[in-house]
Design a protein around this nucleic acid. Structure first.
Length: 472
DNA sequence: CCTGGAGTTGTCCTA
DNA sequence: TTAGGACAACTCCAG
């Protein structure tokens, strides 16, 4: 006798709170079977850090579901074929993904499922506004952030309020923990070290939110620029994996938006707005993952010096703030936003290496690696994207270090070989006089690399190349 | 169709 | 030491 069930298909929504698909199924009479499908043939293959986060997320989620999460390593079609054989399925639902590949695959699966199951639904569980609902007066999509956010988002319907319902978990007899079979984690030092500063799971997303609204949000607007300060939320991996919904954060902002903290709250909300904008661009211009949004850059003469690139990835460029950022990324699966801009500008403008190379490295190393934010942000840094920075905006890693890490705490933490260097020379160690260097046993080229390119030269070269481009 | 204001995040030089 | 303007021009957007 087959049992009657409903199915929630976890995609990038690893939470039980404020989960529209789960809420929908909780209203039904049947108990819900919770499944996750890893398809190794997915075009959008996961980066190494993403796999690690996914592994721990699945473990946590399975615990939340009393060990009843069903995990498959197959194509979604095959999985559903089997489930349709084994159960009477009244409903299947999930929360949508917004990249082109997912849209294509999911619509195929939906058509297949509808042949066998009456009730097949998908929900918006990850965006505050549906990309197709925010348009200009003439019906075309926005291309500039400020009008998109102010006139497009804020001026229309406010985001859905968070809601949580009680779930009824279906106990399938073949529900076992198969997470290790997915082989998401390689047995090496990196994979175990990288999670050291993180607690992964829905509960910890809420913990991070509480901490942020207690401490970080005070002075967020200013403090978010300083990598050694604790003002950033560090919520990005949780948001990416759906361990907390943007709606929960949005309404938490509204709740806390009283009195003098207004500017900070608004700034944080606009950061959520930037995430929306990235997804918006991805939806309306899906090729931004691969191609320049501004086609005139297709003629741009990028260079590729393999040695430079490798030293950038390893944090061995000879520019302390750049190296600190790249090492933070490698060691923690995260990089502070200000530093992301600095290392990005350095790769694209000083080394003239294609933004796509940087995008791929970030994709592999970031816990919050997100196809929308990553593509849109790299294009922004390169100046090839929407709402681009003017080409002459090239970050100076020395000035940026002095300005945003004024006491050098961040830089020294990740580049410990510079610890003894006086602050005056921390961001330009090549200027350190011989007498001082000798005393602290610091030799450039021996204890810390020579800068791979000259700042002034590479800046002028970049300006030249970018200027020539606009004349085409 | 025309018009005018505006556009996340900087740097460098000059007075 | 510091504040202000140049950098260059284009596209987007709203009226």
């Amino acid at each position: 006798m087959k049992q009657k069930i409903s199915i929630h298909w976890f995609k990038q929504d690893f939470r039980l709170q404020d989960n529209p698909s789960i809420n929908y199924l909780s209203e039904k009479e049947e108990k819900t079977l919770f499944i996750y499908i890893l398809d190794n043939n997915d075009a959008l293959s996961l980066g190494s850090a993403s796999k690690v986060w996914l592994h721990h997320s699945l473990e946590y989620l399975n615990k939340q579901l009393n060990g009843k999460l069903l995990i498959f390593n197959d194509s979604a079609i095959n999985v559903f074929k089997k489930l349709i054989q084994d159960f009477i399925i009244s409903s299947v639902s999930w929360n949508r993904c917004y990249d082109q590949e997912s849209i294509k695959n999911d619509s195929k699966i939906k058509i297949f499922l509808k042949k066998h199951i009456d009730d097949v639904k998908s929900f918006n569980g990850s965006l505050l506004w549906e990309p197709w609902e925010v348009l200009k007066g003439d019906g075309t999509p926005f291309k500039v952030f400020t009008p998109f956010y102010k006139n497009g988002c804020l001026a229309v319907t406010p985001p859905r309020k968070p809601l949580t319902k009680k779930i009824k978990i279906f106990d399938s007899k073949y529900s076992t923990n198969k997470i290790n079979f997915l082989k998401l984690i390689k047995k090496n030092k990196w994979a175990s070290k990288i999670t050291k500063e993180w607690k992964i799971g829905e509960e910890f997303a809420h913990e991070a939110m509480s901490n942020f609204f207690k401490f970080g949000i005070t002075n967020y607007k200013e403090g978010r620029n300083f990598p050694s300060k604790q003002n950033v939320s560090k919520l990005s991996p949780f948001i990416h994996w759906g361990q907390i919904s943007p709606n929960t954060l949005w309404w938490k902002c509204t709740e806390n938006n009283k009195g003098s903290n207004n500017g900070n709250i608004e700034t944080f909300k606009s950061e959520l707005g930037w995430r929306e904008f990235s997804y918006y661009l991805l939806y309306h211009f899906p090729h931004i993952t691969e191609k320049n949004l501004q086609v005139k850059f297709d003629n741009f003469e990028w260079e590729f010096n393999k040695i430079y690139y490798q030293r950038w990835t390893k944090g061995q460029t000879g520019y302390p703030i750049v190296d600190a950022g790249m090492r933070e990324l490698w060691e923690t699966g995260y990089m502070h936003n200000r530093v992301r801009m600095i290392v990005g500008s350095f790769l694209v403008k000083n080394l003239l290496i294609h933004w796509k190379k940087g995008e791929r490295w970030f994709w592999d190393c970031l816990f919050d690696a997100d196809i929308a934010s990553n593509s849109a942000s790299w294009q922004w840094v390169a100046g090839t994207g929407a709402d681009a920075a003017p080409y002459f905006r090239i970050f100076n890693p020395v000035t940026q270090g002095q300005k945003f890490d004024p006491h050098g705490e961040y830089t020294k933490k990740y580049v410990p070989e510079l610890k003894k260097l006086p602050l005056k020379y921390l961001f330009n160690p090549w200027d350190c006089p011989e007498s001082i260097a000798h005393n602290i046993e610091f030799e450039i080229g021996k204890h810390y690399p020579d800068p791979i390119v000259d700042l002034k030269e590479s800046r002028e070269k970049a300006l030249k190349v970018f200027t020539s481009l606009k004349k085409i």
